[in-house]
Structures are given as structure tokens and as C-alpha cells.
Design a protein around this nucleic acid. Structure first.
Lengths: 321, 321
DNA sequence: CTCCGACAATTAGAAAGACTAATGAAAGTC
DNA sequence: GACTTTCATTAGTCTTTCTAATTGTCGGAG
């Protein structure tokens, strides 16, 4: 067989990897260094690719290398192709060892950082599972992930979905608090009076907590002036830090956002009983005792963090048996 | 450079083409005929692919060849990959001011917390815009949000999408660093030696940074042992804090994750030039000078944070004019 | 059960590809 | 216009991938 068909005579994947490195850095030499190969090899790969595609990819006449139109197109497509390949590799890594050598846990964004070191220690130490995959995310995503079997356990909040086939272990219940700048010296027992002086930083309605808060305020017929909305706790708290805003948050949202020495005051809400629960969910009957251990360890880690960082608020959190 | 590159060097695309032919006909010989090559070559490609993926693809014990579980998975993914490549070929063939009531800004998750107070101050003070909507999120979501006009400006990273109709202002360029526990006393200039002592905490491939890192390691033919993956920086860093892991992160990812006094060491990567850029994107011609001001303020805020929290690493960040 | 035919795995050697090192030719800098 | 930086080119080495020929194995017919 002669095999004159020169087009396929190029390792396209390798060529695309090299091309992307060059497109990223806009320098052949820099790309070569990043790839751990010589400038010559990169140059040759580029040339071969251009020849195979029959189109120039860079404008060599300018020194910070410039992508041509064809180059731009290739860049977008190459990214997708390499992503697909990456997905393939990752899926096969997880499949090829299908006997739970990896435990996949989705965490409510607000507790993710707090729980990570403890869970990693537990999984590698006590449970002897070699690999752990943690993902943060909104509570709404957790349902889909559980259904798609792309996670094994979800530590999440107020599941609004069908729990048939799933087991739900309570972790804790926490009330919402008023979060104020320390230098605020007005009333804290009347939210309207408070609103005269500060404006509310809200969670946007994309996040389930934001939605819950909005609905609660609505139920209470509170139409508060708004100045800013954000979709993560640290941003909401950052708004309060400016001194001109206040927020409504729970302890777990707070510990995700605050650092030692932040100028914050935490007060009870003027309206009582507004709280949320955190639970651990897993497919019933799978994984043996692991989910319960994870839930219990999560509870312990959170309780510990609350007492250290939020001594006042910690008392109001409820831990089920 | 010694480069033990014999390991993962398979022409994956070719291997997938061959694999698909065999999967279609369920016969090695028939596939070979269809591909215009010898049965031997096909057989060798298959063997190599199975070895590279570390999973059997066919059940050889039955004569009309039968796909294994891994084989079924590969078949689906391979189809998508080859389709993407086909699309690439086909496409390339054809080649030869302040009167806004609310400003909506999407921020790369890693810089969201850092930028929030400064942007809020700027918008309410200097620009006189009454309301600000901030959202964090993955870089991939920003494109959709811009297209859907649900945000006005995106502070994001390495946009892989079509920038026609959009203006892209560079904010900064930051290299990736090695992040280690302080008590690690082994070598930091050889990633393989390092991998003997610590295991890599990765960003999962859901996050664009994770994808970028994975692809870079792949490009360099580095197949590092993995112990944990997570999808936000604070969780990755929390893994390093346990003392048994290391990570590969940029300054902006770090400042999102670290707190004062964390036991971390930050060292340059053994391979040079792996970095990412942060840019501000907005629809061309809209919003007047606001996007540039936002970009500039973002650059200033980030630079300030880097110098305060990461004095070592800060020098390596590049701020375009 | 055994033998046979069809098919797949192996081996060795040739052709092609991918890399390094060294050199030559531009572009950008002063 | 000389100097520096950066990319292209060339030659040579090593690796990969192919063909050709051979050996090994599955599965059905007698």
C-alpha cells in the first residue's frame, strides 16, 4: 500500500496541543519552554499543521505572533476537540476502576471550604479510599448530579426534589442572622429603621438561598431597598465590609466568607424562626456506612468552625441526634 | 531533557479511527480492509489503545467481537471527538457613561471576593450607578451570559469564544505556581520527584482552569498521580493544608483561597511559561468608558491584593499598559 | 472430541514521523 | 546600522507505525 494520502500524515492531536500552546503565549519559543521541548520542534509542528490544513495560522510578519482568521477558527475548534479528549481521558480514568476507588461528594458551596480538609483526611485515613472528588455548587445542581450518578453523596440544603430512592441524613439546622458593619450604631430590632441607614446586599435569586430569602421577605411583606446582589457569600460579606450595607445570612454562609478580624456585627433577626437545614443525601442502599460517617464528620467539622469563628451565633444552631 | 516520553505517546486520533472501524464491523480483518491497511496494523493499534487507556475494549473470547463496558463508553466519546475533528476540517475547508440604571458584571469566581468591595465603591461613588449586580461563575458561563445580554461586563479568563462584536481589555497575566505545605522539604524542581512524596490536588475538569491545567500536563506528557479533585480554589488549598498534597495554582486563585497565616509554600513551576490571562470583555461600543474603568480598577485591586498577600509571587504577574 | 478453517496476535524489518542540536534569516530595539 | 531576540531550516537520531510473514486461538462440522 502506497499511502500517499499525506493529509492524515500528521498527529493532529499533538499538533493541536502545540498550536494551542503557541496561540496562548503568542510566541514559539515561550510555547516550547512551556511544553518542555525545543523551539525547533514547535516550529516544525506548526509548519506541518499549516501544510496539512492548507492555511496559514499565524501572521509571522509581526513579532508578538498574530493569529490569522484561519488561526482564530482553529483555536476555537481545537479547544473543543481537546476538551472532548480530556473528557474521554477523565471518564475512562473513573470507569476503568469501577469498584469505588473514588468517592464523589458534592458540597453546598458555603460549607465546601470548611469541610474539605476534614473529609479528605477521613476518606484517605479512616475509609482507605484513594481518590476523592469534591465539587461545590448550588443546591439545584446537586439533584441533577445525583440522578446522573456523577456524584455519590451531596451535602446540601433544603432539597426540593423527589427523595424516592434517596436517603437523607440531617446534618444541622441553622437560623438566619442580620450581618452589619461594626460601626453601625442604629437600631437592630426594626428592619425598616435599619433600611433607612443601610441598604440590603442580597443573594441573587440564582442561588437557592437568595430565593429563599427573597420569598421569606416577601411573605413578611418586607419590600426593602436593594443596592447590590451577588451570588456568593464572600461577595455579599464584602459588600457589608464597605460599611454601607447589611445582609441576611446563616452561620455556614458566614464562615465561608469571613476572615479573622473582619469588621462585622452579627445580630438576631427581628423576625424569628427563619432558618434552613443542611442534609446529606445519597442513593439508598449504596456505599454502606460511608454516607453516615460523612454526615457525622461534616456535622462535627461545622460545629467546631461555628464555635471558633462565630461564638455568639453558634448557640442557635441545632444538631439532630 | 530526558523525557521518558514513550509512555503516553499514541496517535490517539488514528487509534480512535481504527477503533471505530473495528467497533462498526466487529471484525479486525473487515476493518482493516475498510481502512485499506493490513490486519496486523489494526490489531496493533487496538492493542496500543487498550494499553494506553489501561482498559480492555473488546471481548476477544467471542468471535463476532464484542465491546466491553469501557469499549461502549469509548465508542460514544470517540464518535463525538471524531465529529469535532470532522467539523474542524470542514470549516477550515471553507476558509481558505452613567445613565444606566444597573450595571451587571460577571466575575471569574477566583477574583470575585477580591474585587467586590472596590467595584461596589467605584460604581456607587465615581460612576454614580445606583445598582450593581455581581455574579461569580465559571468562565464558560460568561459567554452565554454576554450573548444573552444578561450581563454587561465579564471579568474572565482565556475566552475561547468568538470575540466578534466584543471588546477585550487585558487586565493581567499570571503564571501558575507550585503550592506546597510549608513542612515539605523535598525537591521542587522535579515534578516527578515531588510526586513521590505528595499527591496532586487538581481542579476538576468542570472548571476551565482545571481543564487548562489538565491539558497542559497532558501536553507536557506528565501523568501525575492524583488523589483529590475539587472545583474551587479554597477546596484545593484546603487539600494542600492537610500536608499530604500539592497543587498548581495562580495568584488570583490563591488570594481567593488563602487566609493569613496559612502553612503554604509557593514555588515556581519546574516547567516555564504556563500562565493564564484575565481580561474584561464587553459589547463593543456600549457603556462608553465604564468597561475600561472597571478593567483598570480591577487590575489595581488585584495588584494590591497580590502584593499584600503573595509578595513572592506578585513579581511574576504581568500588567499590560 | 478432534480437526479444520477463519480470524486475531506476534514478530521483524522498512518507511515515516517527531524530536534535538546547530545554523541561518528575519523582526524588533537601541 | 549594529545588536538582540525570535522564528525557520537543516541534518541526524530515536520512536512510531506500517507491511509481510508467521504463529496462535476460537468455534463449528464431522
Amino acid at each position: 500500500m502506497k499511502k500517499t494520502q499525506a493529509e492524515s500524515d500528521v498527529n493532529l492531536l499533538r499538533a493541536l496541543e502545540v498550536f494551542m500552546a503557541v496561540a496562548d503565549s503568542r510566541h514559539v519559543t515561550a510555547a516550547a519552554a512551556a511544553l518542555g521541548m525545543t523551539q525547533s520542534a514547535v516550529s516544525q509542528q506548526l509548519k506541518k499543521l499549516e501544510w496539512a490544513l492548507d492555511a496559514p495560522l499565524f501572521n509571522r510578519a509581526r513579532r508578538p505572533l498574530e493569529l490569522t482568521h484561519a488561526g482564530e477558527i482553529l483555536r476555537r475548534r481545537a479547544f473543543r476537540i481537546l476538551s472532548e479528549v480530556e473528557d474521554l481521558r477523565s471518564e475512562l480514568r473513573h470507569v476503568q476502576s469501577s469498584s469505588i476507588p473514588i468517592l464523589r461528594v458534592a458540597l453546598l458551596a458555603s460549607v465546601a471550604t470548611t469541610l474539605t480538609p476534614g473529609l479528605l483526611d477521613m476518606v484517605r485515613g479512616g475509609l482507605g479510599i484513594p481518590e476523592l472528588s469534591l465539587s461545590a455548587g448550588l443546591a439545584t445542581d446537586h439533584q441533577a448530579a445525583l440522578n446522573a450518578r456523577s456524584i455519590d453523596i451531596a451535602i446540601t440544603s433544603d432539597p426540593q426534589f423527589d427523595l424516592t430512592d434517596y436517603t437523607c441524613t440531617p446534618v444541622l439546622e441553622e437560623p438566619f442572622f442580620l450581618v452589619l458593619p461594626t460601626d453601625y450604631d442604629g437600631p437592630t430590632d426594626d428592619i425598616h429603621a435599619l433600611s433607612e441607614r443601610l441598604s440590603l446586599v442580597r443573594f441573587s435569586a440564582d442561588a437557592p438561598v437568595g430565593r429563599r430569602t427573597d420569598q421569606h421577605l416577601q411573605r413578611c411583606r418586607l419590600d426593602l431597598p436593594r443596592s447590590m446582589e451577588a451570588d456568593r457569600a464572600s461577595m455579599v460579606v464584602a459588600g457589608v465590609i464597605t460599611g454601607k450595607c447589611y445582609a441576611i445570612l446563616t452561620p455556614s454562609l458566614l464562615i465561608d466568607a469571613i476572615a479573622e478580624g473582619m469588621a462585622l456585627r452579627i445580630e438576631p433577626l427581628p423576625f424569628a424562626g427563619f432558618k434552613r437545614s443542611i442534609v446529606a443525601i445519597h442513593r439508598t442502599g449504596e456505599l454502606g456506612g460511608i454516607p453516615d460517617q460523612v454526615a457525622e464528620e461534616s456535622r462535627r467539622l461545622l460545629q467546631q468552625s461555628f464555635e471558633r469563628l462565630l461564638p455568639h451565633a453558634a448557640d442557635h444552631v441545632i444538631y439532630p441526634a
